[in-house]
Each structure stands twice: as C-alpha cells, then as structure tokens.
Design a protein around this nucleic acid. Structure first.
Length: 788
DNA sequence: GCTAGCAGATGTGATCTATG
DNA sequence: CATAGATCACATCTGCTAGC
C-alpha cells in the first residue's frame, strides 16, 4: 500500500457530500471545489470514517433467527388475542408464553392479565370506577409506570417541597437567588430572566424551580441536597415518564439537574446520562431542534396551503397512540431565543457527556445549531451570557469533530497515533483549538469552567498518544489505572511525534489544573460536576504518565522524564485546594473528587500497586542517548512560559509572536523557539491555594441558618480569583493538610461505604486496604512545600 | 492442521437523477 | 437549487478450498 493511501480525506468536500453532488475542484484554486467557490463557503475535506468491524456471519444468522422466532411468536400471540376477544389470552400457559421463557426478551411485550391490567408489583393496586375509566386509555398503551405509592394514579397537583415543609420559602428563595448569582454564571445554559422571582418561578415552572434549588443546595447542605435530588427524580418520573409531558420547562430542568448532578454510590446508578437523553429527545419532540416551518424557504411555505398530510407515526384513530411530537404547551415558540439557547445547551451537554463517558453522541451538529449560534451572537435580545454560550458551542463543535474522528465511542475502532492520518489530523485539530482560543473576546467571555473544558478537549485530542502504553478503555469514566499494555512492536510511531503528543498531554494537564487552582474556593463550590470530572481527568492523565515513566517496558518512558510531570506538586496542590472547597459544610461534589484525588495521588506515588513490574530497572531516568534527547525535549517544553491571570480568564502569555496560546510549538525544535510555561516553582500562584485568609473561613464556616440568611454572596466576576488567597479553618486544626488524619480516613471510609462516588470509580476504593492507607506518607513532595 | 489464495459478502463513499 | 433515493465502484472482510 502506498503512502498516499494513508491520506485521510474524503474525495468530496463536506458540502458536496452533504448535497450528494459531484465535487469538482475549482480550476483557479484546486484546494476548493467549484460549488464552494461559487457559493463563497469554506471548502472542508473531512477525514474518512474508520470501518466498522462487521459481525461474523454465523453470529448474524443466529441473531436474525432469534429475531424471526420472536416475531413469529409475537404475531401468533396477537392473532390468538384477536380470535379470543375479551376472553382472549386465557391461557397463561399457552405455547407462545411457554416459548417466551426460552426466548430473548427484547421483543416481548409485558405480560398482561386477561382483563388487560398489567401484572407485577405495580399492576396490583386497586382503584375505583372513575379512576379505572381514566386509566383505561393508559393501560391500552402499555404497562403501568407509576410506583405503587400512587394509589390514585398520577396527580397533577402534588405538594411541592415548600408545601410539604421540607424547606421554608425563605430557604428556597435563597437557593434560587444563589443559582442566579453563583451557580448559573459557571455554565450559563438555563438563564432566569431578571424580573422573575422565586415565587413566580415556583408557580409557573415548578419542575425548573425544583431543579434549580436542588442544584444550588449541593454547595450549601449535603443532606438537603440529597433530599431535594430525590424530589427532583420523583418530579421527572411523574411528569415526564408517567404523564408523558414534554415541555421547554422540563428540558431546562433536566439540563440543570444534569449539569449540577450529584453522583450516586455506584457508577451503574448514574442517571445523568438518562437526564441528558431525556432532555435531548424531548427537545427534538417539542420541535426546538429544527427550524420552525414558517421560517423555511418559499417552497416549504407553499406546502402550508396544501391539505395536511398525515405523519407516518400518527394514528388518527387513536391520538393517544400517535408517535408524532406533542407537547403540553400547544403552541411553543420554537424559534424564540430561549428555545434556541436551550437547544444549544442540550447540544453542548450531549457532546460533553459523550466525550466523558465515551458513548455515542445523541445530538450531532446541524445547520440549525450553526444558525442558532449566529442568531444568538447577533440578536439584540441576547443576554450577556449568551456570548459565553456561543463560545461554548463553537468549542464543542470542535470537540464533536475530534470525537467522531478518533472514534472514542467505539472501542474496536479507535484511531491510533501510529497512523499518519491521525498525526495529520491531530495537528489540524490543535490549530483549530488554538484559533478558537485566540478568537475569544477579551471581555465578558471565559469562565473557569469553560477554560477547563478547553484544556479537556486538548487533552482528549492528545490522549491518543497514551494509548501506546495504556488501554483506551481505561480513559472511559470511571477511570481505571489498569496496567501497562504496550502496543505490538510493529506498530511504530516516530519518536518526535510521540514526544510532541506526550509533551502536549503534560502541558495541557498542567494548564487545566492551573486553571482550577487559580479559581477561588467559594466559586469552586458551584462548579458543575462536569468540571470536577475534567479536573480529575487531568490528574488521571498525570497518574497514567507516572505509571508509564516507572515501567520498564513502557514506550512512553523512552520519551519521558518523570520530573517533567511535577506530579507530586500538582496532586498536593489540587488536594489542598479541594479540601478547602469541601470546607466544613462538606460540599457534595468536591467531597467525592477529593477522595478520588487521594486515590490518584497514591497511584502516582506507588505505581507498583497497579502493576507489579518485573525485575528490570525502570528506564525513565537511565535511557540511551536518543531517548534522553526526547525526554529532555519534553522537559524543556513543559517548563518554559508564564501563566498570568488576566481579568476574567487565564491567559498564558506567549513569549514570541506565535499565535498559539499553548505552551510550546508542537514541532518543538528548541526551547528558545517555544513559548513555554514557567516551571511551577516560578509561577505566580500565590493566589487561591495558599494558606490562609480568615475571611473565607469566617464567612463560610459560620454555619449560619440558611433559612434566615438574606445576605447573598456578591456575584463573583471574574470567576477566577485574582486576589484573595483562600483557605478553610478546618485544615488549620490539623496543621498539615496533606497528613492523612483520622478525620479524613473516616471521611474516605464513609465514601467507601457507598455514600457517593459513582462517577469516579470510588466504588472500588476498597482495593487499597485501609491499613495501607494509614501507613502512607502523605507529607508534601519535595519542592512543593514552599508553594503551599 | 495450517496457510495462501480466491470468491463472494458487506460496508462505505461518490454521484447520478428524480422531485419539489 | 436543495434534497434524498438509487446505484455504482471500490475496499475490506469472511469463509471456503486446495495444497503443503
């Protein structure tokens, strides 16, 4: 196969492929096609898809046979029911049902009793004549969905958390305002108009109101937060699943709940993926994901005068069984700025979660999404945070392309850095990310959460180099340290390419953690759960590199000097920062990630816990000349430039005229040519992480009654702290925050009991024996002490 | 039993063409 | 001119078979 066969582009450009028309190069400019040249659009040649592994024929035949049997049985059952009428399926032991036990269940309907009432725990409740009549329609449509507690079926007017006395209206108001001022700015997706009060929101959008106060409660009171989360879940179950409601309000509520989600004890219990799916499908069902009909071009407008056509999914005889989109609100303004903002938010979150969980993306970028971005950017009705939302969307569009090119959601088809096309694409994506960063407006745009996302996407891009040593599965939440799994030796990758990518991984992890470390403690308590996942991901990448650096058979170790990781410093600073964030109130989300950071730190300090090395000496610090050059190159790259805090966002100042905000050029010829980050010891990171200002601890540790608190913290602009150092009185009692004191051991043991941690893999924390943890040396790594 | 080589099946991409 | 079904071309994979 010749080298050209490796070039990873389609022959037709994206626009021509979309329109299924011939793509002919323009004679005057062969880089673009005639159609793009004529219409003045950018002509983009996207990379080819990686082929799917196809199923073996025998497997496929077996599957088809199973499916056929199931369909036959279903048909038979239907015919029997039709013949038998009301007396119908009187034979629970009929052939069809007997077969069912040995058949795959995928196609089976739920068992029904002869009278059509569902069986099973939820099917046995009693109801009177009127309810029976009211429920009859629902029963025809399928099994019972509401819990047995609903003796009278679903209720429209149930008491909310204030009516039931769970919280006072004053507390609810406080939480509501706290969302508006502290929580929302981190992730400005679901905005509350300035003139809407808590009481108005509670009356008009109760689900959104509940989601908002539950999101706010996470940083205030973990018990209240857990209780409100249950209420939120109940509200979604009732309104969305039981009552089949679809509305903009529910989409927004689901988004808020997903963004400020509180992970459960086990990874398998995670519901935020479901929340996001529900939000995405609901958004499409209510029509906010496409252009409204009246906005279409003339030829569509012409159709409106024609007789109404029947949607294929519509059942005119029984509207209740129709699959056509419906909403509770009969005339939602699907083109409103709020609808567009919400749909962009759904898109952003869908891509984000598919990235973290390495699962297929529910919502791909569409022309309507692009149109909505332009609309939001230009609309006179846009609110200030819409600019941030626009920047988020543009960033996420790049992430989506990386995701589809790297095929992270398909473990069998993930791209490899050994391929030339991957290497070329990596450079291209890096340029585009850099261009996004450089084009960010200097003012108003850029929060810590967004910068964390930016670095995460870069990390996601370069992570592919780590697959040389580590299974790609390890990088899928919940993260697994696994062991070294080197590529087969014939899968060669040029040393320079590998060194560049690894250097980028290190530098990007550092930048991400620096962004977090520079944020103020109070602000971090309101960060979305996604941000903590990404902070942990950066720490996890450093831990993975530590493992590589220590392993005798690692390919990465040949281009890596462990000291360039500065892993002890970063881990210690991150742990200290998160301990301060957790504070005396034990903010829920940071608590979970604190335990994870301790675990990662342990992995870094004792890589042999994970992988029992052979007796060979580690190569990282005693490698031959060629490798030594590469590792020194990485060290140089990772230790050069300056980070300065610049207003609302972090900028990494560039020493040369180079436009890239990143720490070094990927060619990495010499340190002098690279714009590089300062060594950690030289950084001006006295802010945000050092002990100790009393003010924060006094303010936050006072334990004031939330229900009486009318004074809200001032809105934090910028969100990245540039001035006040922060700390919490909690750690002053023990002296050294890195000492694994009894209180912390107990705290981690509590985590291990299954209180929290599903996103993080903490459910396997037990793999490290407690006595071993007690023996750990948690004192600060050398060189870090003076920074704390 | 193993393997190279072949034929057919299958997945993917390009673009023709009918339609609105 | 945009859209989308239809069709063709080609790459790649699978399963079979002859030859060792």
């Amino acid at each position: 196969m010749d080298a050209n066969a490796e070039i990873p582009a389609h022959r037709a450009c994206a626009a021509c492929r979309g329109q299924k028309v011939r793509c002919i190069p323009d004679e005057s400019n062969p880089d673009i096609c005639q159609r793009c040249a004529r219409s003045g659009r950018t002509c983009v040649f996207t990379p080819l898809m990686k082929r799917k592994q196809r199923k073996r024929t025998d497997t496929r035949v077996a599957e088809l046979e199973r499916e056929m049997r199931a369909m036959r049985a279903a048909l038979q059952q239907k015919n029997e029911a039709a013949r038998g009428g009301a007396a119908g399926s009187k034979s629970p032991g009929s052939e069809a049902q007997q077969k069912r036990t040995s058949e795959p269940v995928g196609l089976w309907y739920r068992d029904t009793k002869p009278d059509g009432v569902a069986t099973g725990p939820a099917g046995n409740w009693e109801f009177g004549g009127e309810e029976r009549s009211a429920m009859a329609r629902v029963q025809r449509a399928g099994p019972q969905l509401w819990p047995s507690g609903f003796k009278n079926g679903p209720l429209q007017d149930v008491k909310d958390v204030v009516d039931s006395g769970m919280i006072s209206m004053a507390t609810a108001r406080h939480l509501f305002e706290s969302y508006r001022s502290d929580v929302f700015p981190h992730y400005p997706m679901v905005a509350i108009p300035n003139d809407i009060t808590a009481e108005q929101m509670r009356a008009t959008k109760p689900a959104l109101f509940l989601a908002i106060i539950a999101a706010s409660a996470g940083k205030e009171n973990s018990e209240l937060s857990a209780a409100l989360d249950k209420e939120v879940l109940q509200a979604y179950a009732t309104r969305s699943l039981v009552q089949s409601e679809k509305s903009l309000e529910l989409v927004q509520a689901l988004l808020v709940s997903a963004v400020w989600y509180h992970p459960p004890s086990k990874f398998g219990q995670l519901k935020y993926y479901e929340y996001i799916h529900m939000a995405a499908t609901m958004a499409m069902d209510i029509g906010i994901g496409t252009r409204p009909t009246q906005h279409r071009s003339g030829r569509f407008a012409k159709r409106e005068s024609r007789p109404r056509t029947i949607h294929p999914a519509e059942d005119v005889n029984n509207p209740d069984l129709s699959m056509t989109p419906r909403s509770r609100d009969s005339s939602p303004d699907t083109a409103s700025i709020e609808a567009r903002r919400t749909f962009l938010a759904v898109y952003i979150i869908c891509v984000g979660v598919s990235m973290s969980l390495r699962r297929p993306n529910t919502l791909r970028c569409s022309s309507y999404i692009r149109e909505s971005v332009d609309y939001l950017e230009r609309s006179p009705n846009a609110i200030p945070t819409d600019r941030t939302l626009v920047a988020w969307t543009r960033l996420i569009m790049i992430a989506e392309e990386i995701s589809s090119s790297w095929c992270y959601d398909d473990p069998g088809g993930i791209a490899s850095i050994t391929e030339l096309r991957t290497q070329l694409m990596m450079k291209d994506f890096e340029k585009r990310l850099t261009a996004w960063y450089t084009n960010l407006p200097e003012t108003d745009v850029g929060t810590g959460a967004m910068m964390i996302m930016y670095h995460t996407i870069r990390l996601y891009l370069f992570e592919i180099a780590l697959h040389i040593d580590h299974s790609s599965e390890d990088f899928k939440a919940p993260y697994q340290m696994g062991g070294i799994q080197p590529y087969p030796i014939e899968e060669e990758v040029p040393t320079q390419v590998l060194a560049d990518a690894i250097a980028n991984c290190i530098q990007t992890s550092h930048s991400l953690l620096n962004t977090f470390l520079a944020m103020d403690v109070e602000g971090c308590r309101s960060l979305p759960v996604f941000s903590y996942v990404r902070i942990s991901f950066a720490a996890f990448v450093l831990a993975k590199l530590c493992l590589s650096a220590a392993h005798p058979r690692s390919r990465i170790a040949k281009v890596l000097d462990r000291s360039s990781l500065k892993v002890e410093t970063y881990m210690d600073r991150a742990i200290l920062h998160v301990r301060n964030i957790v504070g005396v109130k034990r903010s829920r989300v940071p608590s979970i990630f604190l335990a994870l950071l301790f675990k990662l730190r342990q992995w870094c300090l004792n890589p042999d816990i994970i992988d029992h090395f052979e007796d060979e000496p580690a190569q990282s610090n005693q490698i031959e000349d060629g490798h030594d050059m590469s590792s020194r190159m990485i060290q140089d790259k990772v230790s050069g430039g300056i980070i300065e805090l610049d207003g609302a966002r972090i900028t990494e100042q560039i020493s040369s005229s180079e436009s890239s905000p990143q720490a070094f050029n990927t060619q990495g010829q010499t340190a002098a040519n690279s714009s590089t980050l300062a060594p950690i010891d030289e950084m001006t990171f006295v802010q945000g992480v050092t002990p100790v200002s009393q003010s924060d601890s006094v303010q936050y540790g006072s334990g004031s009654d939330e229900s009486t608190s009318g004074a809200l913290p001032a809105q934090r602009q910028p969100m990245i702290n540039t001035s006040a150092p922060s700390n919490d009185a909690q750690w002053q009692a023990t002296g050294d925050p890195m000492v694994m004191d009894n209180e912390l051991l107990q705290f981690i043991a509590q985590m291990n009991e299954g209180v929290e941690g599903g996103l993080t893999g903490l459910d396997d924390w037990a793999s490290i024996p407690l006595e071993q943890m007690e023996q750990m040396n948690w004192s600060m790594g050398h060189g870090a002490t003076n920074l704390m």
